[in-house]
């Protein structure tokens, strides 16, 4: 499949010298779901705002379906729909009118039946003549999505779509994203929840301090993210590892009082049972056990280190 969105050496500096985006390169294919994962302030929103034209950039090049987003901004922007993180809606306007406005603004001829269909999909049809201030928080969020879809975009940005959203709405959101993908819409969403990326993305990009550390197929990344460490504290000093344990990724700590075992939760068998029974069989007495999951920060750190190498 052809690259739909291409980003080359995209950098953004602020006047005070702060580097918000550091030479980002990214390729996104048509009808794929890409999740940009990263902590707060990593540059996720800046990156998508830049692609949408809301934010300026210092250097680099962005094209969408071959259209340069600066030189050919009309063609490019017509294809983009964007749902911001903050709900920003005109409180006194009616639901239907705000959709008509968005559709018109993006240069599309009026089409109320399409807009009603959209509201139906988002369970908002009965609210079409209500003022926006009458809607609940969840409805407003769905309306933001309807606005972004009102001009039938081919690329949809969802900025933290499920931040502060209840479980049910989150699941609805995921369903909707899959449905859109099946209709041929490319979806790029930002999140700081690993679970969310895991649930719906085809590929995951990890972004931190303005750098896109990696973009990988979800499956292989999750494999890496699923790593845990088991620390086994021993009653007595151990001079060397029992030979039975040499097959495992197990390390004797420098103080010879504990063992560290790295394993993956996502592989079918963790090997913990065998290790523990081998230790018992070898007469080694276990004092305590402790497991630790790599936090998102740990993963970032290890990725940064990997990239540095």
């Amino acid at each position: 499949m052809q690259d739909f969105l291409t980003i080359d050496a995209l950098s953004k500096y602020y006047a005070n010298g702060f580097e918000a985006l550091k030479s980002i390169n990214l390729r996104v294919k048509e009808s794929e779901i890409l999740a940009l994962l990263g902590p707060n302030g990593a540059g996720k929103t800046t990156l998508i705002s830049t692609i949408c034209g809301i934010s300026k950039f210092t250097s680099g090049k962005i094209t969408l379906a071959g259209h340069d987003i600066i030189k050919n901004y009309r063609a490019a922007r017509k294809m983009i729909g964007m749902v911001p993180q903050e709900l920003s809606l005109e409180s006194f306007e009616t639901v239907m009118n705000t959709l008509r406005f968005s559709r018109g603004l993006f240069g599309k001829a009026p089409n109320d039946s399409y807009l009603e269909e959209l509201l139906e999909q988002l369970s908002l049809l009965d609210k079409r003549n209500s003022q926006i201030l009458e809607l609940s928080g969840g409805m407003k969020r769905r309306l933001s999505i309807a606005k972004a879809l009102s001009h039938e975009p081919q690329l949809l940005f969802l900025d933290e779509p499920t931040a502060g959203v209840d479980v049910e709405l989150r699941k609805d959101m995921w369903l909707l994203v899959r449905h859109l993908r099946n209709e041929g819409v490319t979806v790029i969403l930002t999140t700081h929840y690993i679970e969310e990326a895991e649930e719906i993305a085809d590929r995951v990009g990890i972004i931190d301090k303005g750098q896109l550390l990696l973009v990988e197929e979800k499956e292989s990344l999750m494999q890496r993210l699923g790593q845990k460490q088991l620390t086994i504290e021993l009653q007595n000093r151990l001079e060397e590892l029992p030979t039975k344990l040499s097959d495992y990724d197990i390390v004797l700590a420098a103080d010879r009082q504990s063992l560290n075992y790295t394993y993956n939760m996502r592989s079918g068998r963790t090997g913990i049972n065998q290790i523990l029974s081998s230790l018992t069989q070898s007469g080694i007495i276990i004092k305590d056990l402790q497991t630790k999951q790599s936090s998102l920060e740990d993963i970032f750190m290890s990725l940064v280190n990997e990239t540095a190498k």
Partner: peptide
């Protein structure tokens, strides 16, 4: 003021 300007800035106008 209310933030809806994002739509205007990202629109093909």
């Amino acid at each position: 003021f209310i933030g809806t300007i994002y739509e205007l800035l990202s629109a093909p106008v």
